[in-house]
C-alpha cells in the first residue's frame, strides 16, 4: 500500500490550501473530514504489514476525524444557524498566500533536520506535510472569526501532528496513539458544548466578540 503514501500526503496538502481558500464553512468542515479520512488511510499506508492494531488505529482515526467530529461540527453549525460565512480576519487570498509560503518554509525547515538512513524514501514528504498542516491549523486558528472555524483549525493542527506520528511508527505505541485520538475527541466535544453555551449567552459564535476580558 505504500505507493499510496505520497499521493495521500499531497492530497492532505491540497486540502490545507483548500481550507484556507474556502469561503463556506460547510466546505471547510468537509475538507477537514476528508483530511481525517486521508489520515486513516495514511496510517495503513505507512505500515508494511497490516496488523490488527494498525487497522484499529486507522479505523478509529477515520471514525473520529472523518465522521464523528465533522458530524458534531455540522450539528453545531446547524444549531448556531450559520449558513456559509467563514469570515476571515484577513482576506482569503492573503490566507492562501501565507499558507503557500508556510508550506515552502516547512519544506525548508524539514530539510535542516537530519533524517535516518533507514527512513523510507517514500516517507520523505511526511515531515514537510506535517509542518505545513500544523501551520495551516495555526493560520486558521489565528485568522478566522467563527468559533467553529477555530475548532476546525485546531483539528487541522492535530492532523498535522498525527502525520508526524506516522513517521515514528517504530517508537510510538498504539495505546498512546489511541489515547491521543480519544483526548482530541473529548477536547472537541467539550469545545462543542462551550460553543453551544456561547451561542445561548451571546447570540453569536463570533469568537472575536468574546473580548470583554482584557487589560
Amino acid at each position: 500500500m505504500s505507493h499510496l503514501f505520497d499521493p495521500l500526503l499531497v492530497s492532505v496538502l491540497l486540502l490545507n490550501l483548500f481550507v484556507l481558500g474556502a469561503s463556506r464553512l460547510r466546505s471547510v468542515i468537509g475538507a477537514s473530514a476528508l483530511q481525517g479520512v486521508a489520515l486513516g488511510l495514511l496510517t495503513v499506508a505507512a505500515h508494511d504489514h497490516i496488523t490488527f492494531t494498525v487497522t484499529l488505529v486507522a479505523l478509529i482515526a477515520i471514525g473520529l476525524k472523518g465522521v464523528l467530529i465533522p458530524k458534531l461540527l455540522y450539528k453545531a453549525m446547524r444549531d448556531v444557524a450559520i449558513v456559509r460565512d467563514v469570515e476571515p480576519l484577513i482576506g482569503l487570498i492573503p490566507s492562501l498566500a501565507i499558507g503557500a509560503v508556510g508550506t515552502g518554509a516547512s519544506v525548508i525547515f524539514a530539510r535542516t533536520l537530519p533524517v535516518a538512513d533507514s527512513y523510507h524514501a517514500s516517507l520523505a514528504l511526511v515531515l514537510p506535510s506535517s509542518f505545513a498542516t500544523v501551520l495551516t491549523g495555526c493560520l486558521v486558528l489565528v485568522t478566522r472569526r467563527k468559533a467553529i472555524t477555530q475548532v476546525v483549525g485546531y483539528l487541522i493542527l492535530e492532523n498535522g501532528i498525527f502525520i508526524m506520528g506516522l513517521g515514528l511508527i517504530e517508537a510510538t505505541t498504539f495505546l498512546v496513539e489511541i489515547g491521543v485520538l480519544l483526548d482530541l475527541f473529548v477536547a472537541i466535544f467539550v469545545m462543542g458544548i462551550i460553543i453551544n453555551h456561547v451561542r445561548r449567552e451571546f447570540e453569536t459564535t463570533d469568537a472575536a466578540e468574546l473580548s470583554s476580558l482584557k487589560e
Binding site: 535542516t112 469568537a207 472575536a208 476580558l213 482584557k214
Partner: peptide
C-alpha cells in the same frame, strides 16, 4: 498587547514556536 482577542493570543503562541525554531535552527 492583551486586548482580549483570542486570535491574537494564539498568534503569540505560534510566533513563540516559529521564532524559537528559527533561532535554534
Amino acid at each position: 498587547v492583551q486586548q482580549g482577542l483570542l486570535h491574537i493570543y494564539i498568534l503569540y503562541v505560534v510566533i513563540a514556536v516559529v521564532l524559537g525554531l528559527v533561532i535554534v535552527t
